[in-house]
Design a protein around this nucleic acid. Structure first.
Lengths: 267, 267
DNA sequence: AGACGCGTTTGATCTGTGTCAACGCTGCAT
DNA sequence: ATGCAGCGTTGACACAGATCAAACGCGTCT
């Protein structure tokens, strides 16, 4: 089935199409013409409704690899829909320790952490040259109150984030190193699939250290788990290029309980 | 300073006031008369607006200790504001492992996980006899679109949940056992304070195993950390009764980096 | 009063992952 | 070409926390 050979593994390095070196803002966004409708905020809206969204989402912003989209503590004004590219979010503790709290790709929404305290509680950094649609939050709320479908869908998007966080907690709280990495790879695979890229072959945009930070592991442990998966024939690793050879085996790692929960065999 | 001697450590066991053994529903809710306004959904609403809320939040539901408020997979219809009592939420994996994802107390909102897939993704269980206000979600959205302040505040509540999840990830991903427990105790202390109870003395509603599950530790490790804190004079533990003796010491555990990040001394 | 059960504490030992260190690969700059 | 810097891999060893096991405290039931 996966007749995909080299289906561009996510947008190639052509700096997102435009030749003009616009620093920011001036780009006109247009949900109605965007191929991410199915994944993004417009999901479930009618043609007419999407056109009303267009007026709200009026600007885009380019973020170069390594640059921040926003930083902890800056006033919250807008949420962002990723038009193209790849981001990480991370939180920094007073003592210098930090943790990657997520990786976000095209069609996903960034910035909802900022609503509650009216300033952002994490950093969002581009892991490759990226572009986001700026959605001024006050205007989104205005439009939401006029469009029930938009309001409802936005609630779903926020709720989805809460559900995602639950599974990260599960991962960090109960899984062993190899399970965590398997879960991570399967999750990426699935999200790439949803975007029309290959489920079995992709480029990691983040370093081993960033993966480790997200998974609550040290980079050496991540590296060893990759090596082990390769030895077992589950995947082929070449630097940041990953090919999944045995999806079922990875899935089995997650469901097969490697720690035979003892409270099942006593009476 | 803490002249509080035995400031009722959360609602006493008088089964929540009413003598009538109403099983459920029939109770009339009334945000306008509730002393949790400052913490709960009505926060920031005017008198008149709160009265409009009353019509929406029309029923309450009692949940006895050990009973479920909702279970994974059941259709999502309402969110719940905790009127009195104490809950945990947990997620169950296919292989039987589970993880407590949170503990919730009076004034906090339960059930927002269900919005995204229209069915709940975790279990909510009462850890003591409790009572919740049922907030039918469709009606909440309806009223939200008519009341911008309510809409905005609800967004803040959801965002607060996302922010909370971030700090749990930080806890699970980067902290050592004793730091986790310290963070846990400080968090409880702060939330009890916000509800008018003593910051320094409280009853844990959950077992060591549930604490461990939440913190990504085994119950023995939790127990040992409690003992250690007691030896050090940070707290006094007697079963589930906790007295904080040295708040500053607990806080110091969190900020003092016990793992001297090495990348600071090379140039 | 005595017995049972559940939750908790404490000790002894094991192990997965962290830590420290060396080396290899790749791409960029000189 | 050559050197350098950043990232990744691999090995040896250490340690925090898991696991296994025993005993205790407290409440409930008979």
């Amino acid at each position: 089935m996966t007749q995909i050979k080299r289906v561009s593994e996510c947008p190639p390095g052509d700096d997102l199409g435009n030749v003009v070196p616009l620093t920011a803002h001036s780009l006109k966004a247009a949900c109605s013409q965007c191929n991410l409708q199915e994944l993004c905020l417009p999901l479930g809206l009618s043609e007419a409704e999407i056109q009303r969204l267009d007026s709200l989402v009026s600007t885009r912003r380019k973020v170069k690899r390594g640059q921040h989209l926003y930083r902890t503590g800056v006033p919250f004004e807008a949420i962002y829909a990723i038009k193209a590219g790849f981001f990480k979010t991370d939180v920094l503790m007073e003592d210098g320790r930090d943790q990657v709290t997520g990786f976000q790709m095209a069609g996903e929404i960034l910035g909802m952490d900022g609503i509650s305290l009216e300033s952002h509680t994490c950093n969002a950094v581009a892991l490759e040259d990226s572009e986001v649609c700026v959605i001024p939050f006050a205007q989104l709320e205005q439009l939401s109150s006029e469009m029930r479908t938009l309001q409802h869908h936005f609630h779903k998007v926020m709720s989805r984030e809460i559900v995602r966080d639950q599974s990260v907690m599960m991962l960090l709280g109960t899984m062993r190193a190899e399970e965590r990495l398997a879960a991570f790879l399967l999750n990426l695979s699935q999200r790439f699939t949803a975007r029309g890229y290959s489920a079995a072959e992709f480029h990691l945009r983040m370093t081993r250290e960033e993966i480790g930070s997200y998974l609550g592991l040290k980079l050496e442990t991540v590296s060893r788990a990759f090596s082990r998966f390769q030895e077992e024939g589950f995947i082929a690793v070449q630097q940041k290029h990953i090919r999944i050879l045995d999806l079922a085996a990875l899935k089995a790692l997650l469901t097969h309980t490697p720690l035979p929960t003892p409270h099942s065999s006593h009476g």
